[in-house]
Amino acid sequence: MPTFTDPLREIDAASVKEYALQRGAAELSDDFVQEACQRVMELAKPQAICQQCFYDNTSHMVLCDSPFTISSPTACQRIEDSAIVLMYAVTLGEAVEKEVDALFMNKDITRGLALDSALAVATAGYTKQLVDMLDEAGADKGYKAAWIMNPGTGDWPAGQMANIAQAVHAEQIGVSLLPSGMLMPRKTVTGVIGLNFIGGGCSGSCSACAMAGHCGE
């Protein structure tokens, strides 16, 4: 099962500040944001793992070592419309989360929110790095990532994050499943990525294409 261990490239400071403010930070200086981003870069041990998703259209079941039925009509439709579907898990490790917990325990709420927000933004950024790598790997054969979806978004229950983690054997990148169904590290993200055949002359935009939904057939 392929693993991805490239270094974390960067963390978008503006996104960190916006995310922290949305979560209730009354005010957040640029210095706090930069400090949080730098600390995540120092502590993070980014890893990702992915596996092709074998899916039964009739039962909406993912066929793997730990089979499960996808509970999202939206995800099911996207999977059925895609040429290739990959399940994945992404983690930046436990060290950053332990430091976040320590800050909150010491009632350093502002720094805790800043660091936790930087961790969330960095995890999303590393997921994009994974997608970029898949695009590079699929370019020679004409495949490109068309969509990505995670449990906990849209109509997909967050509890299925654990199903995907089990399916891709996320323990290989240090992710564990608690009896409660929660993943550790807590900021672990799992989901599915759909790839479609775009061929050599396609721009990757389907909105104006006569073959939208049917390319590669």
Rank of each mutant, 00 (worst) to 15 (best):
Ile79Thr: 06
Ala13Ile: 13
Val85Glu: 01
Ser71Glu: 15
Arg39Ser: 05
Leu63His: 08
Ala122Cys: 11
Leu119Gln: 08
Cys206Val: 08
Gly138Met: 03
Gly125Asp: 12
Glu99Ser: 05
Cys76Ile: 13
Phe54Asn: 12
Glu136Thr: 14
Ile173Trp: 03
Gln52Ile: 04
Ala120His: 14
Leu103Lys: 09
Arg9Thr: 15
Gly142Trp: 05
Pro46Ala: 08
Tyr55Arg: 03
Ser71Tyr: 00
Ala162Ile: 05
Leu63Ala: 09
Ser15Asp: 05
Pro7Cys: 10
Leu134His: 04
Cys206Trp: 09
Thr3Val: 06
Lys107Ile: 13
Thr91Val: 07
Leu113Ala: 02
Ser29Leu: 02
Cys215Asn: 11
Leu21Ala: 02
Gly200Gln: 10
Cys202Phe: 08
Tyr55Phe: 15
Ala137Trp: 09
Gln172Thr: 15
Ala210Leu: 05
Val85Lys: 00
Ser180Trp: 11
Gln51Lys: 09
Asn106Glu: 14
Asp140Leu: 13
Val175Phe: 03
Leu8Trp: 05
Asp31Glu: 15
Asn150Leu: 12
Glu136Pro: 05
Gly204His: 11
Gln47Trp: 08
Met184Arg: 09
Cys50Phe: 03
Glu35Asn: 04
Glu42His: 09
Lys141Asp: 14
Ala13Asn: 06
Pro157Trp: 12
Ala124Lys: 14
Ala170Phe: 05
Ile84Glu: 04
Glu42Ala: 10
Ser117Asp: 02
Met161Ala: 14
Asp132Trp: 11
Ala124Cys: 10
Glu80Phe: 10
Asp101Gln: 15
Val100Tyr: 03
Glu217Arg: 14
Pro2Asn: 06
Pro151Met: 10
Ile109Lys: 08
Leu177Pro: 01
Ala137Leu: 11
Cys206Tyr: 11
Cys206Gly: 06
Gln77Cys: 06
Ser82Met: 05
Met1Tyr: 06
Leu177Ser: 01
Val40Trp: 02
Leu21Tyr: 11
Ala139Gly: 01
Ala102Cys: 08
Thr69Asn: 07
Ser207Glu: 15
Asn57Gly: 10
Thr153Gln: 14
Pro185Asn: 08
Ile49Ala: 02
Ile79Lys: 00
Val121Glu: 01
Ala44Trp: 00
Arg111Leu: 14
Val62Gly: 00
Ile164Ser: 01
Val62Cys: 03
Gly93Leu: 12
Lys17Pro: 07
Met161Val: 04
Val100His: 04
Ile49Val: 08
Ile49Arg: 00
Val96Pro: 00
Ala13Trp: 12
Ile198Lys: 06
Thr153Ile: 09
Val121His: 01
Arg39Leu: 12
Pro46Thr: 11
Arg78Gln: 13
Val33Gly: 02
Gly174Pro: 06
Cys50Val: 04
Met161Lys: 14
